[in-house]
Nucleic acid binder design. Sequence first.
DNA 1: GGGCTACATGTTAGCGCTATCATTATTTGA
DNA 2: TCAAATAATGATAGCGCTAACATGTAGCCC
Lengths: 336, 336
Amino acid sequence: MRNSKVTLADVAAEAEVSTITVSRALNRPEIVSEQVRKRVRDAVGRLGYVPNQAARLLASGRSNVIGVVIPSISNNVFTDVLRGIYEAVEATPFEIQLANARYKPEREESLLRIFAAQRPAGLIVAGIDQTEAARGILDTLDAPVVQIMEIGADPVDMAIGFSQGDAAAAATAHLIAQGYRRPGFLGARLDPRTRRRFEGFRRACEAKGLFDPDCMETTEQASSIQLGGELLAALLTRRPETDAVFCNNDDIAIGALFEAHRRGIAVPERLGICGFNDLEIVRHSVPAVTSVATPLYEMGRGAVELIAARLKGEDQPEPVRDMGFRLMARDSTQRR
Amino acid sequence: MRNSKVTLADVAAEAEVSTITVSRALNRPEIVSEQVRKRVRDAVGRLGYVPNQAARLLASGRSNVIGVVIPSISNNVFTDVLRGIYEAVEATPFEIQLANARYKPEREESLLRIFAAQRPAGLIVAGIDQTEAARGILDTLDAPVVQIMEIGADPVDMAIGFSQGDAAAAATAHLIAQGYRRPGFLGARLDPRTRRRFEGFRRACEAKGLFDPDCMETTEQASSIQLGGELLAALLTRRPETDAVFCNNDDIAIGALFEAHRRGIAVPERLGICGFNDLEIVRHSVPAVTSVATPLYEMGRGAVELIAARLKGEDQPEPVRDMGFRLMARDSTQRR
DNA sequence: GGGCTACATGTTAGCGCTATCATTATTTGA
DNA sequence: TCAAATAATGATAGCGCTAACATGTAGCCC
């Protein structure tokens, strides 16, 4: 039962067929006769054969690896996306190779270069803000590529996500509709995705004549709960009349909520709080925090499905899939 | 600059040496003369050569992949461990292949079987509760294996972690020292690790004659914030005199805290709450929640370092590394 | 029955790299 | 001075698999 050294040839000998027949019985069983297929299956079982992926890749030039490049693995947002990806992959012959670009475009670039050289079955990259060079690598790559989290005008290949700007605008419009008149924007690191959310926020404010260029509080640091508290404190010091905050994500929103508690600021009466992503925590906090539900898990699943469909060949999927978003209005913005 | 088809042979031609020399210049530069090394380096740069890992693996029989098997990727605990693993790997030639066993021993077994067939450079597995068959696979595997999260009597190979029982006992002793007399235990799914924490809890209670077999509230479901609230509600209904809860992890502790808020139960006066793992959220909640700081990130890093040291050969590391834990006493148990 | 198609299986070569065993140049020691 | 050790490089084979082509076998039609 030791399988570490069992090769195709061993299985072939055991089943009394040639190696190529074993290969076919395993990879394209429909072109092998039923009886041979069974002989092979039995031999595989008896010997405990497990295919050598390296040899398969080397011989065929195509691997079963889907490369995934995300900017952070500790950010809860990507945790849910990853869960979707890993679960979707379980039903397929694919494997995931995960790489962390740490929010550095040049690191993303070099990771993509390495992936490209390994001839992956497909690639999933977060966001639509790749460098020119990165796009070049993806363009010349002969494998399906899915951009995830966000959709934009000019996808590299396929994309699955939603409009960050529209989502932020919807949340902001909700704040205004609830009667808040001096909304602020709390963001952490100002990456392009955050910027587009801010543009949505601005659009919604301007639509009601409420935009104030001084309402944004951001920093260079990575997002965290602690940072949410600090940002709220800073904004309230600088602009005490602030009566609501749109937070760039739920960690910041929760941090802001705790800070409000510490300062005895009533939420939602004196201060409205809105988060982004609808992680579990904002659904159960006291008060529960309004947030924008983004289809994190579904985008992960969808990305894998797009790649699988493309490789299967039949009925090609729409290259851009808008998964939408949902505003989850809760007590933290329930002013009246 | 297209690298997708540049092979060792191309580099060899460009540098006017043989392929094996290029291989050596890349993998064991110290045995190649300085001038040849430079010629090769230049040729690699000019052609944009990236080695084909599959061919390397096939020829050498050893890969640069460290397989990681964890029971969940959405659980925040593993997020931090993974961050440690991925960061440690960046300084090395290794790559990570991550697999999710979903808390199912038989799934873990089959994942290990697959990994074993790929001749990994090393393996990291969470916990010390592998099945007999899984241990068999690991035993016959000719690669370093690190068990992570917990240390026990009989490691497969190497282990890095701490005593779950001692950590739980320390937290429970703290609750008792703070004057709580009817502590309860809130746990989610009752896996062996949770069981050992419960044993620690029981030990600490019995030491003060305070153990009550009826104090444990658990469920089949996976841990979550919502579940923390439900467990607290259930325990208080069943056993209203409960004056403190040791929660099996921080999600449950935070859920319990929110539930206490909703019910108007004063924390820490009427109810003490203690969590486990010291995630960011418990440090900033109101009140801040007492927890046991576990070296998640460090265990991740350490596991990779153990594997790297073993493969390097020199000064073999201690096979079992106890990383300890720290009780972080905060307001949620500050009764007096 | 010759010639055709369709299907099932086999033979051969080679994917890109490294292990192993040469081979050649260079240094060392008595 | 020459054998022997040392260092640097090369030739060859083969890792385990699959692509591409080759062969064999059965069924079918006119």
